[in-house]
């Protein structure tokens, strides 16, 4: 039990630190793409920039608009933060660590329902944005909230269907089972490239990241759902976004890129394997975080109706076809028709 608590603590801290430094990294990546330098004056190479931002937001006047619904106004960022942190519980971070007193499992909880848990929690995550946007009592916030929620609900479907193919291939919902099934280089991306594309696009939409950042696009809605938020409450929203980015990257790596598996993992064993596995997973996670940022700084964003069209008329049919084809292939290979 103790080791679980420690693990929870470590994962919590890592998520927060990574979220913090993701903001820094995002600014740096943007700068590199744009032939700039990026933050470089707060500490060496600007490394203290996230801390400075944190302190600033913490010391800022805690402001609640006069006509807003105070209770819900405070609850919004809280829910956003809570849900995005909750998903990290079922991520398998690496192979077991072997100690004298038994194996330590690098996973907080291995639910039977695994990936469904993530989908469930993500579907609840919409409340943070929705409530926050509504409670701010500002039309732009409301627009942002409505856009965000309808977008997230719509893309959940395609996301779920694309995941089902993986579940069908593995025969389990548990993320650990899915990871184990991809042992070595037997990664799902080689079998399910279409599902990967759909899942990746949908997670961008779920995260409200470009090119699906309609809920907060500043050229149209100023700040979208967080227009009226300042100080640490805004910080929570931004944090939730980056934590979400971290977790999504982790889920993508696990579902399609073998999680903590890496080529040539059979040559090592024991704790070396565990450490290398964790490193492999994090390398993948960072790569996907980078890709998400890369996309943001390259692409223009969709319009709202086009986004809905893409979700309902392109991605869901594609995901369904993919599901059908996968099912048929599995049926043939496992000899159901004989």
């Amino acid at each position: 039990m103790l080791e679980k608590l420690i693990l929870v603590g470590i994962i919590f801290t890592i998520s927060l630190v990574i979220a913090m430094y993701a903001t820094y990294f995002e600014r740096k990546v943007a700068a590199w793409f744009q032939d700039r330098i990026g933050p470089d004056r707060a500490g060496p190479f600007g490394l203290l920039q996230p801390l400075a931002d944190g302190v600033k937001m913490f010391l800022k006047e805690d402001f609640i608009p006069r006509n807003s619904d105070k209770w819900l106004f405070i609850m919004g960022p809280g829910i956003a933060m809570f849900t995005s942190l909750m998903t990290s519980t079922i991520i398998p971070w690496g192979p077991d660590i072997v100690t004298a007193s038994g194996n330590i499992v690098l996973q907080v909880a291995d639910f039977d329902i695994g990936i469904l848990f993530i989908l469930g929690v993500v579907s609840v995550g919409v409340y943070g944005i929705m409530i926050g946007g509504w409670a701010s009592n500002n039309k732009f916030s409301l627009f942002g909230a409505i856009r965000a929620s309808s977008q997230m609900i719509s893309y959940e479907l395609a996301m779920g269907i694309s995941v089902i193919t993986i579940v069908m291939m593995t025969g389990s919902l548990s993320l650990r089972d899915i990871t184990e099934a991809q042992h070595g280089m037997n990664w799902n991306i080689f079998y399910q490239p279409l599902a990967f594309v759909i899942f990746f696009v949908c997670s961008l939409a779920e995260l409200n990241r470009a090119p699906f950042d309609l809920a907060e696009c500043e050229s149209e809605l100023i700040g979208g759902y967080h227009t009226e938020y300042g100080s640490m409450k805004l910080g929570f929203f931004l944090f939730a976004e980056y934590v979400g980015m971290f977790i999504s990257s982790a889920v993508i790596s696990i579902l399609f890129f073998g999680g903590y598996n890496f080529p040539g993992m059979d040559m090592v064993e024991g704790n070396t394997l565990a450490v290398l596995g964790v490193v492999a997973l994090f390398v993948k996670i960072f790569f996907f975080i980078f890709v998400i940022m890369w996309i943001r700084w390259t692409l223009p964003r969709f319009r709202f109706d086009q986004l809905m069209h893409l979700g309902w008329k392109t991605l869901i049919p594609l995901a369904l076809i993919n599901l059908l084809v996968t099912g048929l292939v599995i049926a043939f290979t496992s000899g159901w028709f004989n």
Binding site: G120, S123, V124, V126, M130, S149
Partner: peptide
């Protein structure tokens, strides 16, 4: 399973509609 489906269907979908 029912628990998580309950969460997804009721909390994640139906109540969003109400809201």
């Amino acid at each position: 399973f029912v628990a998580i489906v309950n969460m997804m269907v009721y909390a994640g979908a139906i109540m969003v509609l109400f809201l």
